[in-house]
Design a binder for these strands. Structure first.
Lengths: 348, 348
DNA sequence: AGCCGTACGTGAACCGGTAAAGTGCCGATT
DNA sequence: AATCGGCACTTTACCGGTTCACGTACGGCT
């Protein structure tokens, strides 16, 4: 990309303000060394000339990069359907913008590509830090990225993030809460449609689901793992609802699969919530536009993103090393959950 | 953001390869001036040292920026629900990645903020070019951005983009096709739930809808404009379906509103498509997970994004000045459209 | 042998800032 | 009066590349 335009530089500003460029630099980085009057004059001149410090030059000289990288590893068609990420990103950006930083986003196909991308970004100093998401059990990205020395904050439970400073939300408690809520309504056969089994937070939810069901003495449980796609959610729901002892409630790992599940119930002529209760995760507007609207385990994803961005600045600054917890998803009851039609509370 | 790490630079590579840094530079930009043997040796050394040219230094010296800006002006909650953008972005990135460029994304709240952002990005040479989307009638961004001299490609019909090189899809023909299809099924009262009336492509579709209805002699038309949100789509649908002479078919401006519309139909006890046919726009997976699946005016959004990115490189290179058209959205019939229940073809 | 053209490289001058050391001036301290 | 600390700047050395004018050596031609 070639840029033709003749640009106004710090020298022009310095000359016109009658000071050295060092003074202009100090003024613009608001550091001591220039009097209030001079500072004001410099700003005025800069304004007149429409000058803004050249980011590139600034990074080069100051060894500071105003760009944060985020690679998301999922096929695009799928990603497009996850309201989660857009909200998450907007949270990140709110914080970044406050520090004149920007987010560099890339969609990658697999973890190898992701690692290669981060290496490239970091080696070439395109980014000053990164946000790592979607941790897997024994995530293969951990070793190479740690070796890189790339400042990064991981989104996920500390047990998954291999020593990277992390920001996480308590999926275990939330999953457990979901089960308890459904059990309290009288459900005994509860199923769960989860994400890929290798994915860390899906695994955590799966384990918590299992444990809580056991604790409550409910044995009519069944879990299915999917790729987070609507179609798979539909397939999983269909197979669950066709089973001999079909569940009276289903918990989904995101909202898109829950919506797909609701469509399947409709298709099979089952009433929601009378015949089957549906509970979504990662509440988004999507949950409010179905009929009936979907109950969901909801949390403030935007805020989650903000905390992650703040944590990243902490990492880069050398503070923040540990794990930061954001609020646990809480139940937002809507129309898709209710007591099972013929609840027989007395039965085992 | 401070970076501590001691880095290997072009000098290290040059020294170790026994050449000057100029030679290394030439080798890495594959330009004449170094023999094949030397070039090979340089690459080998660079590989050993794990050296990648420093992007920042490169941009500064070469006056080339490998970053493209995209500001999207919509509230985040809404954006999260538009599968369109994620696919669009992934298309853009596929092309960018091929040229080692990246996409800088920012969500803004209004057009003023967007203009300010582009000015900042361009002045500070953070980006080398931009992609402009969501053109309005008499778009207020046109004048200030043209004045900036920012290389940009506009997404939208040439009549809207105020002289910016553009990439567009024929919304008018598509809207007309949608109407003709429904009319052919026997529908005479067709409604349309559109986007904000100020938005260029919504306006174009609205006009085409109107014109085609007139041409076909169908006077039972009604159009509503919304903010693209699911809830508004639901509200609009409800009010349309409650009207005395309710439409037998509704065309939506995106898929999320169509999904919301389907839920409303269910809520009102209307059968789709017997009582009312629904037609979505910007086909995405969302259309396939409802029951019945939604017919849609679909097009290859990923490809759209690719073309836009390619056009931007064209703009920056000085070629591509005009308008580039990508394929017109075409009807993908699914279960949500069909003949009206009591089609009375003979009636006016 | 003398001259030229070419291919391969070198070296220094940038690119537009930042940062740390240096300079001049002034009031306060000893 | 001489010393000193501080402030307000200026100077200068980078940051890590790119670019281009300028060697240098070698082969071919006359």
């Amino acid at each position: 990309m070639n840029v033709p335009a003749p640009r106004v530089t710090i020298n022009d500003v310095a000359a016109r303000a009658g000071v050295s460029k060092g003074a202009v630099s100090m003024a613009f980085n608001n550091r001591p060394g220039v009097s209030a009057a001079t500072r004001e004059r410099i700003f005025e001149v800069a304004r007149q000339l429409g000058w803004t410090p050249h980011q590139t030059a600034r990074s080069l000289a100051g060894r500071r990069v105003g760009i944060v990288g985020l690679a998301i590893c999922r096929p695009a068609r799928l990603l497009g359907l996850e309201p989660f990420y857009m909200e998450f990103i907007s949270g990140i950006e709110d914080v970044l913008a406050g520090r004149s930083c920007s987010l560099l986003l890339r969609l990658v196909r697999d973890l190898d590509e992701e690692v290669a991308l981060y290496e490239e970004w970091w080696r070439s100093r395109t980014i000053g830090g990164a946000i790592l998401v979607d941790f897997h059990r024994e995530d293969p990205r951990i070793a190479p990225l740690r070796a890189l020395g790339l400042p990064a904050v991981a989104v996920g439970h500390p047990s998954l993030t291999g020593g990277f400073p992390s920001v996480w939300t308590d999926d275990a408690t939330a999953a457990s809460d979901a089960v308890r809520y459904l059990a309290a309504l009288g459900h005994r056969r509860i199923a769960r449609v989860g994400g890929p089994s290798g994915l860390g937070h899906s695994g955590i939810r799966a384990a918590a689901f299992e444990a809580t069901m056991t604790e409550l003495g409910l044995d009519g449980r069944r879990q299915v793992s999917t790729g987070f796609v609507g179609e798979e959610g539909a397939r999983a729901t269909r197979s669950l609802l066709l089973a001999p002892e079909r569940p009276t409630a289903i918990v989904y790992d995101n909202d898109i699969m829950a919506v797909a599940g609701a469509a399947v119930a409709a298709e099979m002529g089952l009433a929601v919530p009378d015949d089957v209760s549906l509970l979504a995760w990662d509440d988004s507007q999507l949950c409010r536009i179905t009929h009936p609207p979907l109950s969901a385990m909801s949390h403030d994803v935007h805020h989650f993103g903000e905390e992650v961005a703040r944590a990243l600045f902490g990492v880069i600054a050398g503070t923040h090393k540990g794990a930061l917890q954001v609020p646990t998803p809480a139940l937002t009851p809507r129309g898709s959950t209710g007591p099972p039609r013929r609840a027989r509370p007395g039965r085992a």
